[in-house]
Structure formats: C-alpha cells, structure tokens
Simulated scan of single mutants.
Amino acid sequence: MPSELKKLERRRKAQKHLDEISGREEHVLVVHYSCESFYDRPEGQTPRVTSIAARNYSSGQTASFSIHKIAELKGVAFADIDSEYDKLEKEMLKEFFEFMEKHKSYDWVHWNMRDINYGFPALEHRYRVLKGKPVELDESRKFDLSRALVAIFGNGYIGHPRLIKLMEKNHITALDLLDGPGEAAAFENKEFVKLHQSTLRKVDVLANILGRVIDDSIDTNATWRDKHGIHPKIILEYIAKHWVLTLLASIIGIGSGIYSIFF
C-alpha cells in the first residue's frame, strides 16, 4: 500500500503537470479512439481500430480519423468495408501517425490509453502488424487524466465506471457516447458511424472534465482532506524518513528551552 508521502508526491506531480497544461492550452490535444473488444481474444490479436479523434483543448478543433471516412474516400462500398478492413485501417492509422508527427511537441491528454490492450502501444503495434511504421510519442508528452484524478483526489473520488460516474456527478450529457460493451457491440454490428460519433463525444467530454479539473470546479466524492492531500500519517512518515533532522530539531528545541531558563 502506497505511503501517504508517496501519495502526496504523486498528487504534486499530477498537479504540476496540470498547471503546465493550463499554461499552454493551444498546444494540448485531447485524444481518444474506438476499437473492437479487447476481451475474449484467445489468439491474442491486437483489436482493430475503428476511429480516432484528437481535439485541440484551446480551440476545440478536432481532427478525426475513421474507417468509414477512409472507405468513402477510397470508393469502397459500405458492404465491402469488412473485406477491405486491413487496407482501410492501415490508411487511417497512416493519417493519424502523420498528424502525430506534426504534433509531437504537444501534450496528449487521454483516458487510460497506456498499454497494449488499449492505448498508444496498441495503436503502434496495430500499425506495425499492418506493415506501417508508427511515430512513437515521448512519454513526457502523454498525460493520463484518469490516473491524474486518482493521484489528486484519491482512489475513492468517484465510483466505477469512473468516466460515466464522473459525467453523471457533473451533469455532463452522454449524447452519442457508448461505453465499452456498447462500442464492442457497435463494432460487431458494423455501426462504424455510431462508433465515430461516440469517439468524438468522448474527446469532448474529456476536454470538459479537464477544464473543470484545471479551474477547480470538478465535482467528486473526494473529501476536503483527500482534495488537499492532508493526512496525519504524513507527519509520522516524515519523522520516520527524516529522523536525523527531527532529532536535531529536538536537540535545538531542548537547548533553546534550557537557555531561556538559565539565561
């Protein structure tokens, strides 16, 4: 179990990154993507990607990349998307990584996009599978809003699923937004437009939440103590960690007391 000092350190780090983001809003992108289900995959293939959206936090302008848009541009009929999926997906990912190359210096705010199941590594791997060469974004440019909220407000700041519960708590409408199972079902039903609309809605929601966190108007279940990272154990842990300084301070305090009595 993490110590209270470690939690405080994580909170300060997350808050510092948020402060940096708020100071360069024009160079912040909020990103999200949809794909087929990454569960129930006994052969371990990486889920196929359906759509990606990257929204500029300051302007609200959104760059989007989707299977059905690529199919339209390539003259592929909707009924033929499934048989041409790999080619269309490769072209979509090519466009996305070209966009990333142009915005490598930006901060990329995301929600749990951190592993091979779902995240930047999954997008990179999927493009490699399709014989493409992905751009690898530096870790310092990635900001996981989901983890940051836990670091700032604590594990119990909201119920699960956290994004949906946070939306409900803050009265953010869920128009067009699909949850994980909903996205998986939409993929199976080849509802690519619905998936794309959900992806666009999610970057809008994430940008909304980011703004509320930055201006300290986000509503959560966190207590005042959770929000400010104050816990009695911190004092005890600090004393244990810095016992030499504590002992020295005690000696100085005792010495000062004796001096005041006799002199």
Rank of each mutant, 00 (worst) to 15 (best):
K6Q: 14
K6I: 00
A14T: 07
K16D: 12
K16H: 11
V28M: 13
H32G: 00
H32W: 02
Y33G: 00
C35S: 15
S37A: 15
F38Q: 11
Y39M: 14
G44K: 13
Q45A: 09
T46W: 05
R48P: 00
I52D: 00
A53R: 00
G60S: 14
G60H: 15
Q61V: 12
F65V: 05
A71W: 01
F78R: 13
A79D: 12
E89G: 06
E91L: 13
E95G: 06
F96G: 02
K102P: 03
W108L: 13
V109I: 11
W111S: 01
N112I: 02
R114A: 12
G119I: 08
A122F: 04
L130V: 09
K131I: 04
V135G: 03
L137D: 02
S140A: 13
K142E: 12
F143N: 05
D144F: 05
D144M: 04
L145F: 06
L145K: 07
A148P: 08
L149P: 11
A151Q: 14
G156C: 09
G159P: 05
K165L: 10
H171V: 04
H171I: 03
I172K: 04
I172S: 08
T173I: 14
P181Q: 07
E188V: 06
K190H: 14
Q197L: 06
Q197G: 05
R201Y: 04
K202G: 01
A207G: 08
G211M: 06
V213R: 10
I214D: 03
D215W: 09
D216L: 13
D219I: 11
D219P: 00
N221I: 01
A222P: 14
A222K: 12
T223C: 12
R225H: 13
K227I: 07
G229R: 06
H231F: 05
K233S: 01
Y238S: 03
H242A: 10
S260M: 09
F262H: 13
F263A: 10
F263I: 07
